[in-house]
Design a protein around this nucleic acid. Structure first.
Lengths: 136, 136
DNA sequence: TTATATCATACTTATTTGGTAGGATAAGTT
DNA sequence: AACTTATCCTACCAAATAAGTATGATATAA
């Protein structure tokens, strides 16, 4: 399951794409409009900034805008930052690889093979950019 | 992420497919061979039995065999029984549908649209049967 | 009758998720 | 300078879920 955190993050980026082209948008506004708990949103925004997706400006009229362009940010990027791996088992993850604890032979593991295929099918869908997603 | 429970369940079914055609296989053997904590495995086996995937026989020489045939059990079936929905957000799940809490309009929700497509891509992969998976 | 299994309920423990609290810091406005 | 509006940061907390255990009852073949 996608976490609320990730869902909020995507919603936030879609909101910024729609209203934040020129001026920064504050967490307060996003929180109110997208129905996201304020303090929780702050955490998410910080994470997006630390990962070079957004930039921020302080003070009145401050808020958040894109650092990376919306047509260069994929949904997969956001999920990886916020939730971690796309793959459903760690041993087929490209970005968060981990050996399965009980697995004796990765090369012949049938589950691994299936979930590797699954990841392969999932990725193109999640490689949709925020810009594309907004215009769907 | 796939839970360990689900992974163990699939491994168990693969094991039965390989060694349990004729005689029942005990939890003890599966536990040892597949490296699954015994008592935890018992829970999983019970769930699979209650969901008409396996049947059991008691006493010495007892154990578990298929009730449903391996070519009629899909990986998706197992995941649904053990973990719940395949879909990554509840509002696009066929078998475990739930409205998203903050969502105002499901019909126009772009996230919903994307994750609906994602589910559509995932399903054919997970509709692989245990029999097919064993012979991959 | 004994050994080997499943069966059932309940409990525990660790991790993750979804937040909150409280205050520091920066910047624009008056 | 004071005030307001905002981000920034660390830490904490509560509920839910995941993963695994404990204890004992029940059935069955030898």
């Amino acid at each position: 399951m996608l976490s609320k955190r990730a869902k909020y993050a995507i919603k936030t980026l879609l909101f910024l794409q729609q209203y934040g082209e020129s001026r920064p948008i504050s967490a307060k506004i996003i929180s109110k409009e997208e129905n996201i708990p304020y303090k929780f949103l702050e955490n998410i925004l910080r994470e997006l900034r630390q990962n070079k997706i957004l930039k921020s400006s302080r003070g009145p009229e401050g808020g958040y805008t894109f650092l990376k362009q919306p047509n260069a940010i994929t949904v997969a990027d956001v999920i990886r930052i916020v939730d971690g791996p796309i793959a459903l088992i760690p041993c087929v993850s490209e970005n968060f690889y981990e050996k399965c604890h009980e697995c004796t032979d990765e090369a012949t593991c049938k589950i691994r093979r299936l979930f590797s295929k699954l990841r392969t099918e999932m990725l193109p869908v999640l490689d949709t950019t925020i810009a594309e997603l907004a215009s769907i």
